[in-house]
Design a protein around this nucleic acid. Structure first.
Lengths: 348, 348
DNA sequence: CCTCGATCCTCCAACGTTGTAATCTCGTAC
DNA sequence: GTACGAGATTACAACGTTGGAGGATCGAGG
């Protein structure tokens, strides 16, 4: 059905390899020949067969992106960024969902044959932790996102969680808040975004010499709006006094803000609220939600760039000293964050 | 590096084809042989090379999903559903973003070599219209989503736009509203979700013998929150009287609701608001937003099912009368919708 | 003991592409 | 007029898999 190199070669009156050379922009081709071939190509509407190319050359032009769930806005916006970035490099993105923190599913994915036709993987785990670091020793290029695993044997693109959470907390302190509730802590967690952001929160308190109060931590299991709402409700019911809420992500903050307003608190007059993630929708809530933009576009751009470098490095003949098995050590990249002050933390 | 059929065959002491047969569940294999082979497979950690398989057999196990943008919540949730559905059938999903209604990009995508390693495509256009129907004559299985093109030469999964919009409007009428503003109409549009939903709106008005007032239509270009906010602001500024707002999608409705509250209208006491799409976040806005769930999961499930049937049909030997070139005519499927009544349309 | 059919397995040839190495074709220099 | 070499093209062999056709094996029946 579809035209092949053979057909094009026959029409153009050259060898099949010459056509291949034209398609691949080989430099030593007589202009007249190139023209003939290009004409035949468009005439037959020839398109290279990617399976065959991939079989022969080992490259597919597809990168994998594994993330928990697209229905979580943060990951949807991240995927959007990654796809746009990949498109600039003429790569196509295959998305795998690992579910909301399903450790086994994440580990299984890393060795799934489903990744076969992928040149490399950008992986954002939510369930694995540093004890699973060995699973990251895979045979394909891998770039890690997120805060679950540090010091692994792979490149890692992450955000400045501690610093950013500290900045968010300081923002509230600057506005005179002294009893800052945290919504979204994970009970007993030592790694991961929640732990890091709580750490930044505590550092900011310490720096301002504001005492830390355990009862201001609202625990949740997942980071959905519902969880934020529930934690906020519990905290209100517990009778703890607070004058600000730091949602460890925007979704939690929006859920919490909803409950606050329902309970009669005015935002920001009675309680200031800040989130984290820089979601688009924080611009349109009532009131608009102050938040931390963790540098999502930069994260996506860096992840794709690094992955592409790794993919290139593995197929190119090793330049320079060949005794180094891998020319680059795994590297950690940290995107810049920025604080978006909006109505939810405005001073009256 | 990676083990091939050859390696496995050598270890198991059988021919390469026998290994292939085991992998593909061929029935006539002696249990002892199968066991030997399986042992060798797990010993060598063999995984089939999908490129080679695809080159030989023509199937890749990948389906494409082309949609405008993942940062639009509706499409993110749709993608989530499609991926989950595909996973049940052991298929992997490759996502292409065509941008918010970029007609040329959509047309270009349909013949992009990027789809080469895809067995078929689920396509949700936003810029093309019925005049582009010819472009849908592609050589691969294609399932169309959305409301832009009807009567095309391909299977089409859609929602009951008119009926659902009519139900939403009737819901408002039932609550005593008589001046129902519409946010999100597209100027001069004849096809597409906006037109259909406006049609449903008018039908409901007619049925209730409520006069239609052109000045109650709020026009927008895109369906982002910002557009909903802007259109609402314009309508308020214009001085038109209204007692309800029908956002043609949830995002518009949320943007509009934000502006209403800012302007001092109470929802639902002064103005009732309803949206369309059944987004997760409508459950958590303040007030919670009434909406239409257009049956997204059903749409995703149907689209994947139909696509898989088409893919199967094209490779299987034609059963029965072979004079029919295509055993099925293109079919249109319409998912059931449901109305979710929430606080934004509650009666005082 | 031979035949026959069912079951099990193997051989061979593709699928469409690209890397390597070899060949051909010039224009240029002597 | 011949030799040279760079530029331009080609032949051939893979890449790992599966379809098809044919070969081996085995038990049962004659």
């Amino acid at each position: 059905m579809a035209a092949t190199l053979h057909d094009v070669a026959a029409v153009a009156g050259v060898s099949i390899k010459t056509v291949s050379n034209v398609v691949n922009d080989y430099e030593h081709i007589r202009p007249s020949t190139r023209e003939k071939v290009l004409k035949a190509i468009s005439e037959l509407d020839y398109r290279p067969n990617i399976s065959a190319r991939s079989l022969r050359s080992g490259r597919t032009g597809v990168i994998g992106l594994a993330l928990p769930e697209l229905s979580l806005s943060y990951f949807a916006e991240l995927a959007d960024s990654v796809i746009k970035e990949a498109e600039k490099r003429n790569l196509v993105v295959l998305i795998e969902q690992t579910g909301g923190g399903d450790r086994d599913k994440e580990i299984k994915l890393l060795s799934s044959p489903r990744l076969q036709l992928t040149d490399g993987l950008i992986f954002s785990p939510l369930g694995m932790d540093s004890s699973d670091v060995a699973h990251l020793n895979v045979s394909y290029p891998l770039v890690l996102l997120g805060e679950r695993i540090f010091g692994g044997p792979v490149d890692h693109v992450t955000m400045k969680n501690v610093e950013a959470a500290k900045a968010a907390t300081r923002h509230l302190l600057d506005r005179g808040c002294r009893r800052i509730a945290v919504i979204g802590a994970h009970e007993g967690e030592l790694v991961g975004s929640a732990a890091l952001r709580v750490q930044g929160y505590r550092e900011a308190l310490d720096a301002a010499e504001v005492p830390f109060d355990e009862s201001l931590l609202g625990y949740v299991i997942e980071w959905h709006r519902l969880d934020g709402a529930r934690a906020m409700r519990e905290m209100i019911a517990s009778g703890v006094q607070f004058d600000a809420v730091f949602g460890l992500n925007d979704t939690l903050a929006l859920g919490a803000m909803r409950v606050l307003q329902e309970a009669g608190f005015r935002v920001p007059e009675d309680v200031s609220v800040i989130g984290f993630d820089g979601l688009d929708e924080t611009r349109y809530s009532l009131p608009t939600l102050s938040t931390i933009d963790p540098g999502r576009d930069e994260i996506a751009a860096t992840a794709v760039r690094v992955l592409v470098e790794r993919i290139k490095a593995r197929s190119e003949p090793m330049k320079g000293e060949p005794h180094e098995p891998d020319p680059f050590e795994p590297h950690q990249y940290r995107a810049e964050f920025s604080l978006q002050a909006r109505e939810s933390t405005a001073v009256a």
